[in-house]
């Protein structure tokens, strides 16, 4: 029993790590720009697809393909901000949401057109399995978990320690005060979209290497990402980290001990319960 619980916790960590990265991207955009960036999942998966393409069709090593995919992802993020979201920045918040939905359809369609409807898996050649007592951890899974932790720590350091990071936080907390303090509010949205898309692409690559990318997978992740935000608290970085990990492990334990058919329902029920008991989320500030 103990071994099973431990194994399920390890199982849930990998997917939880992906949730955290997706949610961090979403929470940055939401906290600072107030946009529910629904196309985030599909754009993230585009990054994964691109890595796959570079590795399999262009013969690039995985470690060389990743920076290219990240750079392209960041560029795409900037384009999305400038062409799609900026024109509706000052309109009703519904409009930004509808734009996000339209973007999702477009990016999904482009992914389908460019990369086909068959699932793709980024080949890594990593197939060793580590054993600790009765618990097994595949090599690749371990690297994904470690990479997620490194990225999260890097993000935290960036926000806490660098000047740009502090400016972003300042804008998130109080836009007018930030302007008074001399923060360049114009460049912030671009930086935010660049960072969040880079995190998303990283998540897309992890999904593509450890699992697979296929039509519709990105939309699934973005919904879970938003569930994490609600769970952890809107616009809260620690909330996204805690929420993503909790959701990943909850799903795993629920599938193992309650019902695999209703695994996703259980995840959403947890989210709704949190809303009822603590509407601001686990680590959110009281409004």
């Amino acid at each position: 029993m103990l071994i099973e619980i431990l194994q399920q916790t390890i199982n849930g960590l990998a997917i939880g790590g992906v949730y955290v990265l997706i949610a961090l991207g979403l929470t940055t955009v939401f906290g600072i720009l107030g946009i529910a960036h629904f196309a985030h999942g599909s754009i993230s998966m585009f990054g994964g697809y691109l890595t796959f393409f570079l590795v399999t069709s262009q013969g690039l090593p995985v470690l060389a393909a990743i920076p290219v995919a990240l750079a392209t992802g960041i560029l795409l993020g900037l384009l999305v901000e400038m062409l799609a979201y900026r024109p509706v920045r000052h309109a009703n918040h519904i409009n930004a949401f509808i734009v996000a939905l339209g973007l999702t359809m477009m990016v999904e369609g482009i992914n389908l057109q460019l990369f086909g409807h068959e699932q793709v898996v980024i080949p890594t050649g990593l197939s060793r399995v580590f054993r600790f007592g009765g618990i097994t951890v595949p090599e690749l899974r371990l690297y994904v978990i470690i990479a997620a932790i490194v990225l999260v720590v890097a993000m935290m350091v960036f926000v806490e320690r660098t000047k740009t990071g502090q400016a972003i936080r300042a804008v998130a907390e109080n836009r007018d005060a930030a302007i008074l303090m001399g923060v360049n509010v114009k460049s912030i949205p671009l930086i935010v979209f660049g960072i969040s898309t880079a995190l998303g692409v990283a998540a897309g690559i992890m999904v593509g290497a450890l699992f697979a990318i296929a039509p519709g997978i990105g939309e699934g992740f973005v919904v879970k990402g938003f569930a994490v935000l609600i769970l952890g608290g809107l616009g809260s970085f620690p909330g996204a980290i805690l929420g993503g990990t909790v959701l990943g492990i909850t799903e795993s334990i629920a599938a193992g001990f309650i019902s695999s058919a209703y695994k996703d329902v259980i995840a959403f029920v947890v989210m709704i319960l949190v809303l009822l008991i603590r509407p601001q989320g686990l680590l959110g500030r009281t409004p």
Binding site: E4, Q7, Q8, N11, G12, A14, I15, V207, F211, A212, A214, G216, I217, G220, E251, S252, I253, A254, A255, G256, F257, S260, K263, D264
Partner: peptide
């Protein structure tokens, strides 16, 4: 498992 599931380790562990 559902059509979009790719992580089957929870079910397999059970």
């Amino acid at each position: 498992f559902s059509l979009r599931d790719r992580d089957m380790t929870p079910q397999l562990t059970k």
